[in-house]
Design a protein around this nucleic acid. Sequence first.
DNA 1: ATGTCTTTGTGAACGTGTGCACAAAGATTG
DNA 2: CAATCTTTGTGCACACGTTCACAAAGACAT
Lengths: 225, 225
Amino acid sequence: MPTVSSEELAAAAGVNSAKLRKDFSYLGSYGTRGVGYDVEYLVYQISRELGLTQDWPVVIVGIGNLGAALANYGGFASRGFRVAALIDADPAMTGRPVAGIPVQHADALEDIVRDNGVSIGVIATPAGAAQQVCDRLVGAGVTSILNFAPTMLTVPDGVDVRKVDLSIELQILAFHEQRKAGEDAAADDDAMPVPTAAKGAAAAAAMDAADPKGTDGEAPAVMPA
Amino acid sequence: MPTVSSEELAAAAGVNSAKLRKDFSYLGSYGTRGVGYDVEYLVYQISRELGLTQDWPVVIVGIGNLGAALANYGGFASRGFRVAALIDADPAMTGRPVAGIPVQHADALEDIVRDNGVSIGVIATPAGAAQQVCDRLVGAGVTSILNFAPTMLTVPDGVDVRKVDLSIELQILAFHEQRKAGEDAAADDDAMPVPTAAKGAAAAAAMDAADPKGTDGEAPAVMPA
DNA sequence: ATGTCTTTGTGAACGTGTGCACAAAGATTG
DNA sequence: CAATCTTTGTGCACACGTTCACAAAGACAT
């Protein structure tokens, strides 16, 4: 029986072995003392707990470059996600196969969601269309939204939204890059604890929010160009 | 002078106002007691600290759907990122303009990186090519890598890598979705503290790592199908 | 069957981040 | 100029997550 120890796993994953054991312990006591964890059983338990053993039909709305990239993304199928439908508002796209799946027109959105029992929707539309698409998805019964459009979506209670901002990761890299470059001549701003600052998403979020909040009631429009 | 209070900002960003003030205090004392923060000055300071005022030339390698989507992504330019070049290994792509930028052949990768002083590279290639591209980027002087390919990259010390896995966000949604659905009949696994489990990325990472670690030395290949 | 050896599961200590609450600072008003 | 009022900046306490360290459990050898 192939097994793994928490030590091996921790080394491979780059985390502390005690933390890993404690995490596993929340799923139950699947390990055998003196031996380790049965790999196959462990994988099954984690998959099940994570919902990977279920079949999750998803719809992708907005089949531009990003939508097409997502439709072609191999990682979905292997993790229990099935692309139930591709939806686009452009009539010229209708019927055209992307990743082997014919694109359907946005008019059919509600029917598609209902007929396939879709509870997870992916929005890859331009920012302007995102909220409207979101509303329609939610109206049709979708309760989880993955939003790639650069807008904040408003949803009713009970609906989960996760926003993916491709440029945030780049910003984090640039931040560290700046630190690297500034290490030589960093004599002036040495008082700043890096970990806190790097995690200070509050600051970044606030900056985005700062714009329309001028006390004078006018939108000062001072976002960096 | 348009100003904001930490209270307004915190409400807009959905965070605690004290935390926000503390975060800002690391940048210096830019606020005025009794008034708040000068919006314009605050935005400038945060932008500067985050590296948004600098011009960061980036190269995107692998101009498939995802690479094209990234090249077209509007969020980059507005945050100080400039797409210095698009690179693809397919000769048929060479010269073809994507997002207004002609694609260059991978042979020129090193020259492009050096000539443009690129320190940030984006990898949007298939998984098989990612490590090789990464090595060449690093060899040419890139010190930060944003990896969209579904592979773990190995890099020398001093190089930052951030991996973006489009399916992880979906998994998180599916996890919560499963919880929602299971709330009715959740009488058997009630002992699990959700917050910890949801954050337990160690478990997920370990699962990926579990595969090739069988004690018998053979790769058991038990990843969920 | 008994002892030894390995590895789990977890109680306890530690460190870090978050939120409260208030004194200090400065603007504003009379 | 003094009093008042608003909002910052931060010391302090608390809570949470992480890590240490070890007893309990079980396999394996003798």
